[in-house]
């Protein structure tokens, strides 16, 4: 066997093995997706978006409900029973989740961007700036349940109870390092000559940053924000100790607030079939939400050379 032949054979073996493992990986990925989509769509119906949490149904009630959904004839007694049935939905959890995510974004984004700006534009390579970078890397890899307990100690305990605000604080803390580091990195991609050009025209440093550097980095920073929101949207652990959960529709942030993740966990681990169904629906809705954010983030990133201004302008027309 010549050296070239051997190389070709080895090449083929390596290619075959790596393909095989890629296929295995993809198989599990699609399996998960398939199970999620199948069960999720089976459980999904319109009432989920309009009803809040309700007590679980008894076996008999569930039978009647399923019968009516399949369009079968109901006896008088069953019809009477059906009118009493309170069907559970996820409205409270969807709204709660949106409020928590939105609140966390409102708190986490400005702090993260300003801190990232400090680190890149003012701290540069100083020890203090590098310390902040290291700390945020540590924070990023900290188990989210630890952040939950931390917020429990500093917010929940002193204020005397679980609350939406505590949940927002926990999620904002989780977003902070991601946004800080993305801002830091994206500002780092803006070339120094652009900064110098602004300074050379007589711009004060803060105007250089806000009017020129941010413009150069805005698509990247926006992507970082979307990915950070997607990241926190799937968190359960930090919410268990903070916003906790409720089966009721609640928009008062001083009260416990439902979230899709905690609701999903509670419903899925409950012994009641209708609740388990809702668990699947919650999983599907959450996955769709996160997927949507990721797609938008990635599309934005791939359009990096196009300024967002153009996109917005086109949309207006």
């Amino acid at each position: 066997m010549s050296a070239t032949d051997r190389r070709k054979v080895i090449n083929k073996i390596v290619l075959a093995t790596s393909t095989l493992f890629a296929v295995i990986g993809i198989f599990f990925l699609f399996w998960i997706l398939f199970v999620l989509l199948k069960n999720g769509f089976e459980a999904l119906n319109l009432s989920i978006f309009f009803n809040d949490g309700a007590p679980p149904l008894s076996v008999e009630e569930l039978e009647i409900l399923n019968k009516s959904r399949e369009g079968l004839e109901l006896s008088e007694f069953e019809q009477e029973e059906l009118s009493w049935i309170e069907i559970s939905g996820l409205r409270h959890a969807i709204i709660g989740q949106l409020m928590l995510a939105f609140g966390a974004t409102l708190v986490g984004v400005p702090i993260g961007i300003l801190a990232g700006t400090y680190v890149r534009e003012y701290g540069a390579d100083s020890k203090f700036a590098n310390l902040i970078r290291d700390l945020s890397d540590v924070m990023m890899s900290a188990p989210s349940i630890v952040i939950g307990t931390f917020v429990y100690a500093i917010v929940v305990s002193p204020t005397g109870g679980f609350s939406g605000y505590a949940g927002i604080v926990a999620l904002a803390i989780m977003m902070l390092p991601i946004i800080l580091r993305t801002t830091d990195d994206m500002l780092g991609l803006v070339s120094n000559t652009l900064r110098e050009a602004a300074i050379a025209l007589g711009a004060p440093k803060y105007k250089m940053i806000m009017q020129v550097v941010y413009r150069g980095a805005k698509v990247g920073i926006l992507t970082g924000i979307l990915l950070a929101v997607a990241r926190i949207a799937g968190e359960t652990a930090p919410l268990l100790f903070t916003s906790f959960n409720t089966n009721f529709f609640e928009t008062n942030l001083t009260e416990p607030i439902a979230s899709l993740t905690v609701t999903m966990f509670n419903y899925a681990t409950s012994p009641y079939e209708d609740w388990q169904q809702l668990g699947w629906a919650a999983a599907l809705i959450l996955a769709g939400f996160v997927l949507g954010l990721n797609i938008v983030g990635r599309v934005l990133l791939s359009m990096k050379h196009i300024s967002t201004k153009k996109i917005f302008k086109k949309r207006k027309r």
């Binding site: 000559t193 652009l194 050009a197 050379a200 025209l201 020129v212 413009r215 150069g216 300024s307």
Partner: peptide, 13 residues
């Protein structure tokens, strides 16, 4: 005192 650089430095606008 204005300045022109080696590489063009058009702002992203």
């Amino acid at each position: 005192i204005g300045m022109i650089f080696q590489k063009p430095t058009a702002f992203p606008m």
